[in-house]
Amino acid sequence: MTRLLTAAILIAVLVGALLARPAVFIVLVVLVVVLAWHEYARLAQAVGALPVSAPGALMSAAVAASFAAPRPSTMVAVLVAAILASALACLRDHYRDPSGLVRALAATISGMIWIGMLLGCQIGIRTLPAGVAWLLLLYGSVAVGDSAAYYGGTAFGRHKLAPHLSPNKTIEGSAFGLAGSALAAVAAAYLLLPGLMPATAALLGVVLGLCGQVGDLLESALKRAAGKKDSSGLLPGHGGVLDRIDAHLLAGGALWAILTLGWLT
């Protein structure tokens, strides 16, 4: 029940933010970036890489927000500035003892890209024409794929997918997940994006589903390395923010890239 209630609130907040003006969605994403960054920083600390915490969160937020900028060059400029600032912050922390510098810098910049940039892609999608419809397709195919993988795996799972990273995932479950993602994308295209052919939508769904599963595995691996079950206890019944968005990170990035490159038009 707690899990369902939390999910209901999260979905309602997301729907509200999508219904409102683009600025509202941007604020929501930036908030999620900051929360997810802190969970990431704690996981990274547990494996001995010390990202600079507060500056990292700020830089990640800036990188995410830069996706709302009208000119692409702005995004690059913000990213470069964020890398510079991170380097300075890491140097400040480590200039007496440079032994951990490379690990700290690597953890900071990869977190900035993994969370700030990939979540920022969703801001980028929101500002595109029919952005809300594309986002709904993204969330739909990742969520349906996730559920399909869980139920398909529970019922038919025989062969382990990645026993060292996430012991409960199976190849059968993964296949069900991809099929679910494809179906959800076709349904979303039919309902929301009349210009998108069903075959293209199915292929897109498979790509997004695959990215979702890889993103999921990536976070599982990070948690496993850190010896934690959840990224935090912020969302009752769901673990942390990072647990909730892990699958959407790579998938959102992929969708933004595909749309920006104009492969679907």
């Binding site: 907040v13 509200g16 219904l19 409102a20």
Partner: peptide, 17 residues
Amino acid sequence: VSLMALVITLDVSKLIP
């Protein structure tokens, strides 16, 4: 609870200029 969360989100969104 969903309706409350949705309406409160929309309320907050009106505060964001």
